[in-house]
Amino acid sequence: MNVFRFAGDMTHLFSVLVLLLKIYATKSCSGISLKTQELYALVFLTRYLDLLTDFISLYNTVMKLVFISSSLAIVWCMRAHPVVRRTYDKDQDTFRHYTLVAGSLVLALLFHDRFTIREVCWAFSIYLEAVAILPQLVLLQRSRNVDNLTGQYVFFLGAYRAFYILNWIYRYFTEQHFSRWIPWIAGLVQTGLYADFFYYYYLSWKNNVKLQLPA
């Protein structure tokens, strides 16, 4: 495992911790999109089917279990926790996320490595992850005041994607690891979605003002 891959995994893990911390410490999920969180839960559940069949490393297994359980816990909190669920910005979180699920499913049925349940599920999870942040970005744009932790959550998620691309470039040259075109294209699309956010995050950091995305 190279340093970029590890940095990517750690920023991903960090984003989850920041989100859990925000919900736990403030007992609030305002500014967080339940739709994005549900999509991530679906992404992890469909991608990590190999937990049942393959063992790659203890590191991989633990990280997969962490991502599955944390995403389910966040969804549970936002839907069912007696205090937290009342802070959910339901009226602003209106992205039709099932269109993303349907689109990803169609793509996965058309473009996959092999026509097996596992491979189609894997491709589906890659496509869905690429666009799963969209409801969250739309919600951020609608929220007049983005609190620091929510901004940091999205920042770390974006950093994770950027590190993964560096990881693929590194592996391409050092291992002749031809990470197939499916994750390459989906990964580039996904990282591109954050470009705008990064720009405004940088401005707010530089000028030391609260993050606000233009409508």
């Binding site: 995994d9 991989n60 990280m63 092999r114």
Partner: peptide
């Protein structure tokens, strides 16, 4: 049929 690459990333 090409040997399938192991999916070792998260």
């Amino acid at each position: 049929d090409v040997e399938q690459e192991q999916k070792d990333e998260l």
